[in-house]
């Protein structure tokens, strides 16, 4: 029988990361969609960096940054008594950074795809930028938001390199499904490893299928 704890921890990590990224990702994407800031391309590249960077590279630098010996870790530990290395909180912060492009990019693509006149029509009707975002722009990019949410959640469930570097493998704290799978393989427990792997494959396939079905359904019903 497999230990269900890593699966629950994975779901918890993915859920919290997705919620945090939804809150952060929408304003970030909105800002990117209209800003003429001269260093915008550099910022876009930084946000998208996790897509192309080996996870261990990011994990390594986050590990250094979160370490109580270094500036960020020392600051958090000294002033807030927060420790991010080898804790679940650290995993969430690392996952948020690592999964940022999975949330921001679909929402940004959705916003850029809307006619500029929608936003302009709303503000000429006396509405603020915030009301325009909430009541006009977001309802018209529902598919993009849903894609961002599903892709972020799915990506979090498959994280390995960053999670292992920042969190290690502490049962009930940082040992998520991908790490548990790796340990089972190292211990030659191929049967258990197979179950973890099969669950992750099934989940990832279901998520992608859901994204494509939803996209198809929304297009057919003319809902953007």
């Amino acid at each position: 029988m497999i230990d269900i704890e890593p699966l629950l921890l994975t779901a918890k990590l993915a859920f919290i990361t997705t919620i945090v990224l939804l809150v952060i990702g929408i304003p970030v994407a909105h800002w990117f969609s209209f800003t003429r800031f001269r260093f915008k391309p550099a910022l876009e590249a930084i946000i998208t960096l996790p897509l192309v960077l080996p996870p261990t590279v990011l994990g390594f630098y986050l590990l250094l940054a979160f370490s109580p010996e270094n500036a960020v870790g020392k600051f958090l530990h000294h002033y807030f008594n927060i420790r991010l290395v080898f804790t679940f909180g650290g995993l969430v912060v690392a996952s948020v950074i690592y999964s940022l492009p999975f949330m921001v990019n679909p929402i940004l693509a959705g916003l850029k795809g809307l006619p500029r006149s929608l936003q302009e029509a709303s503000i000429t009707l006396g509405k603020s930028g915030f009301i325009t975002l909430i009541k006009i722009l977001l309802p018209n990019i529902r598919v993009s938001i849903l894609t961002g949410v599903i892709m972020t959640f799915a990506h979090c469930t498959g994280e390995f390199g960053v999670v292992l570097m920042v969190g290690g493998s502490i049962p009930k704290e940082t040992r998520v499904a991908s790490v548990a799978l790796f340990e089972q393989v190292q211990n030659m427990n191929y049967h258990t490893a197979n179950i973890y792997a099969a669950i992750l494959i099934f989940f990832s396939f279901s998520v992608l299928l859901a994204v494509y079905l939803l996209n198809d359904k929304f297009r057919k019903t003319h809902i953007l």
Binding site: S117, L118, E120, A121, N140, L224
Partner: peptide, 12 residues
């Protein structure tokens, strides 16, 4: 009041 060339009606 601004009437745009593409009407800019809110589709939803």
């Amino acid at each position: 009041g601004f009437v745009f060339q593409d009407f800019a009606l809110f589709p939803h």
